[in-house]
Design a protein around this nucleic acid. Structure first.
Lengths: 257, 257
DNA sequence: CGATGTCTTGAAGTGGTTCAAGTCACGTGG
DNA sequence: CCACGTGACTTGAACCACTTCAAGACATCG
């Protein structure tokens, strides 16, 4: 485990120098490049993309990567750690719109208005690659593969959000939570982690907020699933014991409406 | 009123000829070009975009413009009429993900997988412009303004969906329905129609499905709003009598969670 | 070793659903 | 033109899934 919890803020310029000199990783050597923006690029194209990626930035747990209404200049690729994005209404209600893990792009919702439409907050000490959008746009003109993949990523974000709408509009509590777990599972799987054994990076409250349920409901659902031997849970450590059954539950029809 | 309800299907090729010869409208003369894809383009750019727009297509009420899992080749701009988009789960549950009116782009969710992710069905006899995506991509390389606006439209779709997530995850029935009405109102307003007096193009059932409520709830909410003199309603004809109050209701905080 | 925040569990309450009858609007055919 | 049928909507009453409220257990950390 590498600790990135304590950063000497007084030495920021020096650290940046160090990064540009040697410690900076490249898209081509990044283990996430098959999920992230560089997907499908050749070596030389990846290097060009590399050049515009300003710097990596560390974001401590509970720190905001950006805030709602901040002016938009750059996209972020999660390199390490986890984030949540959430909106806040004028009345102060919060809605978490997504949880984001390594290889995912943050900030695409800001393109339409040049201002961020939500908050992005680190769920643990995390790290992102900054991708200045204006420079990325320049590359688009010359790298159709990059552009095409960027469109795929935006489109993916749309379908993801629409799936969540389906979850919130149509599913019962049990289905929602099962779908949530199955979703996490498959995302860890494509990243090479165990699809059945992982840590919940977010609080019960975050889960409840995301799923349109209360924290108590989440707690009860966990207890119920545990009793049904669908999973083991200890604090935020989860082991899915019956993934097929959870998938079944997640797909199950809804008698309502 | 122009009736497009009866189309002689046997004469399809002849009709297409006729279109390409004279009856075809152009982006530059279209009243929607400030909302739609050509936004911000100069005359000559608009003409180039015009050239790739294959044809206009009529879609009768309740007909599908495309179906879930159809292969994706073209985007559609709504030219006339209204559409709904909805997903269907394996279990047969439906979730309407949006209602779409003139000037809006349909099909962007299909880019990520090259297959449509939802159904698009006309709520009344309607008309769309077909925009072959492969050709559009070619234009992107040469028309940065077009590309930029396309990104704005995709980003807009993301923020729209996220707003709906907030609605479904956080709001009470009354707020949801008020927000729905206010949303329609403002969309008609930017199109130059009355923001207070319009027809609901969708059934109560569609509204309920979209808002995650039952048809009975919608009916009761309409009755309540009517009693509170917030609106008049007769069948699908709506008149909003107190738009400020409806906005107030839509923004109101939620005690839940 | 308290103090604080996170989570669990139980009991009571309720907003919206479900179920069941209507009513209304509209098209169709006699 | 009316009778009829059908689909869309309304309204009432009973119900229930999830919330709310409340109390306590547990984990983490200065």
């Amino acid at each position: 485990m590498i600790s990135i919890a304590h950063i000497d803020k007084t030495s920021a310029p020096r650290v940046q120098d160090a990064r540009s000199l040697h410690s900076r990783d490249h898209c081509s050597t990044c283990s996430l490049h098959s999920l992230c923006l560089p997907t499908g690029l050749c070596e030389s194209e990846m290097n060009r993309l590399d050049k515009i990626i300003g710097r990596r930035r560390k974001v401590l747990k509970d720190e905001a990567l950006y805030r709602m209404d901040d002016p938009f200049t750059t996209l972020y690729a999660v390199r390490l750690g986890h984030f949540k994005t959430h909106q806040v209404t004028p009345a102060g209600d919060e809605q978490i719109t997504g949880f984001h893990m390594a290889g995912e792009l943050l900030g695409m919702d800001a393109i339409s208005t040049d201002r961020h439409h939500c908050y992005a907050v680190a769920l643990e000490d995390s790290e992102v690659c900054e991708i200045p959008f204006a420079q990325l746009e320049q590359l688009f003109a010359e790298m159709p593969t990059l552009l095409r993949h960027f469109h795929r990523l935006m489109s993916q974000e749309i379908t993801r959000d629409q799936n969540t709408m389906l979850l919130l509009g149509n599913m019962r509590a049990e289905q929602r939570f099962a779908a949530f777990l199955v979703n996490l599972s498959s995302r860890y799987k494509v990243r090479g982690y165990s699809p059945t054994s992982f840590q919940l990076r977010m609080s019960r409250e975050d889960i409840g907020n995301y799923l349109g349920l209360t924290i108590e409901s989440i707690s009860r659902l966990l207890a119920r699933f545990k009793k049904q031997a669908l999973l083991k849970v200890s604090n935020r450590e989860i082991e899915l014991l019956d993934l097929p059954m959870l998938k079944q539950l997640a797909m199950q029809g809804n008698t309502a409406h």
